[in-house]
Nucleic acid binder design. Structure first.
Length: 328
DNA sequence: TATCCCACGGATCGGCGGTT
DNA sequence: AACCGCCGATCCGTGGGATA
């Protein structure tokens, strides 16, 4: 094989290679015929012939040899054609991806959630998304509402389930209220109060507590509840926002932790965990103020995020109805 | 508005293989 | 050997878009 163009050139884009050149190479690899490649590309045979000649001039490489019955790609031609086929396929894939993105079948959704709602609502919604939108990558950040609100306004979240912090400008948020988040007081399975015949809230106050620090919504709710019951506030409190540390402390010590009922049920064995903690039958009406689906007021959700949001709204309505049934 | 560039199609030519 | 058909290459004219 002889090389008509002795010098190899590097950056083909800079040398002026166009999509049409690559399409032609991809077709030539299939047909080994310029006229057939041209027909497949919906251009005339002379145009295709010119493209082929241009590409050889640009690359400085012999890409094909002429036969009486068509053309045969050289080793370099086959190599370039393989790349071209991959690029053409990539463009086809990109087109399909754009359609899927438009229909919410691809892309990613990042949402925030407070821990209770994450288990009650987000988990079932993720299961549903996996069935209806398997191409969508879902990320869930579990945190307290103050952090979630900041992340939402910084565009790090599509939306979140939680509350709008008191100090925030509410006009920045669009809020769909779901319902209250019932709370329970949790202790380890072998805690002295776990097996006592009659436990009251005042029995709990003397123990260590583990819960959110001062200023957190859950902490304020618990403090207000105890004050309303005419009880003193716990003297020894471990402050943490970590559910994991809270549970570890509860399981290893006699500490008492207020936590979302949904979280407590998981570790209490209601859903097949191992029942290493139990909820005390005190403070049955302890609940944090209603949580909601919160999004930026003036932004459109992406199609995938819209689907996820709709699923959560559905489950939120069912959740609110269940709560109303239990209290009524 | 004039000019340039680009893509395209039609016409034509030359090379080659198959058929008669 | 002559003819025919297929194929790629080239020339030329045309039309559309961008730009000065």
């Amino acid at each position: 094989m002889t090389t008509r163009f002795p010098q190899m050139r590097g950056d083909l884009m800079q040398r002026g290679v166009k999509l049409a050149h690559l399409r032609l190479m991809a077709q030539l690899a299939e047909t080994n015929q310029i006229s057939a490649a041209a027909a497949a590309m919906n251009i005339s045979q002379p145009a295709a012939s010119r493209l082929a000649a241009e590409l050889e001039k640009i690359t400085g490489v012999e890409l094909y040899v002429r036969n009486p019955r068509g053309v045969e790609l050289t080793e370099q031609g086959r190599r370039l054609a393989a790349r071209a086929q991959s690029m053409v396929q990539g463009l086809r894939d990109a087109g399909r991806e754009l359609v899927e993105l438009g229909e919410g079948q691809a892309g990613s959704v990042t949402i925030g959630s407070v821990s209770g709602a994450a288990i009650e609502l987000v988990l079932p919604s993720i299961k549903r998304m996996r069935v209806t939108n398997p191409g969508v990558e879902t990320t869930v950040n579990v945190d307290i509402s103050d952090v979630l609100a900041k992340d939402l306004l910084a565009n790090r979240l599509d939306f979140y389930i939680g509350r709008v912090p008191a100090q925030s400008d509410r006009r920045l948020f669009s809020v769909s209220v779901i319902g209250e988040e019932p709370m329970v007081l949790v202790v380890r399975r072998d805690h002295p109060l776990a097996h006592a015949s009659h436990v009251t809230l005042s029995d709990c106050v003397g123990y260590d507590w583990v819960m959110q620090g001062q200023g957190g919504l859950l902490r304020r709710t618990v403090d207000d509840y105890l004050i309303a019951q005419g009880l003193p506030l716990p003297q020894k409190v471990l402050n943490t926002a970590s559910v994991l540390l809270t549970l570890a402390t509860v399981m290893e010590t006699n500490a008492i932790a207020p936590m979302a009922r949904a979280v407590a049920e998981i570790f209490g064995g209601d859903r097949g965990f191992d029942g290493r903690t139990v909820a005390l039958a005190v403070a049955p009406d302890l609940a944090v103020s209603p949580f909601a689906l919160v999004r930026r007021a003036h932004d459109e959700l992406s199609p995938a995020a819209r689907t996820f949001h709709a699923y959560l709204a559905d489950l939120g309505r069912a959740y609110a109805a269940r709560l109303a049934g239990k209290s009524g």
